[in-house]
Simulated assay, not measured.
Amino acid sequence: MDLIRLESSGHHAVKPYKTALVKDGTPATSFAVGDVRTEFGRLRACPAARNGLR
């Protein structure tokens, strides 16, 4: 199983970093998959994600 680690927003460098990304139109996080529909179905079937994916 692959894990994604999400860092805290409490570090003093986070706000200027996020602000600069938004200003430039750059996504802060992006994911790539070969088949979006299959991946969506896989994620939707995951018990931990059932409340967030519609």
Rank of each mutant, 00 (worst) to 15 (best):
M1H: 11
M1V: 12
D2K: 12
D2L: 13
D2G: 01
D2M: 09
L3P: 08
L3T: 15
L3F: 06
L3M: 09
I4R: 03
I4N: 08
I4Y: 10
L6S: 04
L6P: 00
L6C: 07
L6G: 01
E7S: 02
S9N: 12
S9G: 06
S9V: 07
G10V: 04
H12R: 13
A13I: 11
V14L: 05
V14W: 00
K15H: 14
K15T: 13
K15L: 15
P16V: 01
P16S: 05
P16R: 01
Y17M: 13
Y17S: 09
K18M: 02
K18Q: 02
K18E: 00
T19C: 03
T19L: 02
T19R: 04
A20M: 03
A20T: 03
A20I: 00
L21R: 15
L21E: 02
L21D: 01
D24S: 13
G25F: 02
G25Y: 01
G25V: 06
T26E: 12
T26S: 09
P27N: 07
P27G: 04
P27M: 04
A28P: 00
A28M: 07
A28Q: 09
T29C: 06
S30Y: 14
F31T: 08
F31W: 05
F31M: 06
F31S: 05
A32Q: 11
A32N: 04
V33H: 10
G34C: 06
G34E: 03
G34H: 08
G34S: 12
D35H: 01
V36T: 02
R37D: 11
R37E: 15
R37Y: 12
R37H: 13
T38G: 03
E39T: 10
F40W: 07
G41Q: 04
G41M: 11
G41T: 08
G41Y: 02
R42W: 07
R42A: 10
R42D: 10
R42G: 03
L43T: 02
R44K: 13
R44H: 11
A45Q: 14
A45V: 03
C46Q: 15
C46R: 15
P47G: 08
P47S: 10
P47H: 06
A49T: 13
R50Q: 15
R50S: 08
R50W: 13
R50A: 15
R50I: 08
N51G: 10
N51S: 11
G52C: 10
G52E: 14
G52M: 14
G52N: 12
L53A: 06
L53P: 06
R54C: 04
